[in-house]
Simulated scan of single mutants.
Amino acid sequence: MKNTKFSHLIDEVQDEVISWRRYLHEYPELSFQEEKTSQFIYETLQSCGNLEISRPTKTSVMARLIGARRGKVLAIRADIDALPIQEENSLPFSSKNAGVMHACGHDGHTAILLGTAKILSSLQDQIKGEVRFLFQHGEELAPGGAQEMVREGVMDGVDMVIGTHLWSPLETGQIGVASGPVMASPDTFSITITGRGGHAGLPHQTVDAIVIGAQVVSNLQHIVSRNMDPLDSVVLSITKFASGSAMNIIPDSVEMGGTVRIFSTEHRIIIRELMERIIKGITEAHGASYLLTYNDGVDPVINDEKVSRVIEETVLELWGTQALTQMKPNMGGEDFSAFLKKAPGTFFFTGSGNSGLATDYPHHHPRFNIDESALSDGMNMFVHATFKLLDY
């Protein structure tokens, strides 16, 4: 590490941060139900000192650190909710809540930001401006808790916002940064096709919803392959197809659903219109009817170029070029975008994958875990980037 200005402070809190992460992992709570989690965060922040702590919503927490001198306002966000997954790890701190698990690293995000708040609160006299620590509920459940916090004013007056995601596909010690599009908008849709059921041995007397539905599935794939620019990142996936109750009955209807992943709101409008046109054409041609419901997901995460440059500079000053990974956009969704609509910022990735520790399982897997040494990497990034951004 090249810059060790605050590293001794991070070393001093590392064991405590690990213990916080393990406690949170042991007692996970689902989206919008994070009552004990948010209370733990609130009480932990109270022990730090120099913080103005509030509860913007029932299960979220915000802490404000007002520096010794006037300046810019930086917000740092961590998500705090868990997933409806039964954990398969055999850890001393495995989930004690049946069917609920921190399978995406939010326990680590929370611990990192708590550690950052503790360190920065002790450096209040060195801070020019204000730091807001946002502990966000409900990231995993659309439409997400970020927009609720924004409506409650947590971003009012904020000049910049940053956040990180512990990332198992990235090796521990690597920090992934991207400028521009980084995470997609996860839209969802459902389609019901209604025909006329009947005897499977007399198909000419029916309007076969399954056959029509199969054509719809096939033709929807043409939207990406034949209607979108090959250089644009777009995904349209059918993930559900349900119909029928017996081998000798052609059913009345088919229900299907799926997801569209995009980086442009203009593409969202185009894709919705193309889906409508394709489904309408096929069903009308066969004498069937349809119902299409398209649900906009959270907006795509688009990183600010200037803030991303500061994050990259922070990585280089801390660990050198070998630690910096230029991230490609990925098609996962993140409601961090709600904060970015209020202020420029960057969402970066902190590597936590370590095959030797079996922490390279994919996110949302029942054996997901993190390399806890990545917690200090996250704190190093937040603490050092705070001073760089407030002085920018």
Rank of each mutant, 00 (worst) to 15 (best):
N3W: 13
Q14Y: 12
D15F: 12
V17G: 00
I18R: 06
S31C: 08
K36G: 07
F40D: 05
F40T: 05
Y42S: 00
C48Q: 14
M62R: 13
A63E: 09
L74S: 06
L74A: 00
S94A: 14
V100A: 07
A103H: 05
A103V: 03
G105Y: 02
H106Y: 03
D107F: 01
H109R: 05
A111D: 06
A117I: 02
I127A: 04
E130N: 09
V131C: 03
E139P: 05
L141W: 05
L141Y: 08
G145L: 02
M155D: 01
D156G: 11
W167N: 11
L170D: 00
V182H: 15
S185M: 13
G197W: 02
T206N: 01
V211Q: 14
V217M: 06
L220G: 02
M228H: 11
D232H: 01
S237V: 03
T239H: 06
N248M: 04
G258Y: 10
T259V: 04
F263D: 07
I271K: 03
R272E: 15
L274A: 10
K280L: 15
H286A: 10
A288W: 06
A288M: 03
S289I: 09
Y290A: 05
E305F: 12
G320Q: 03
L324H: 04
P329T: 01
E334G: 04
S337L: 03
K341A: 06
L375Q: 03
V383Q: 00
L389Y: 02
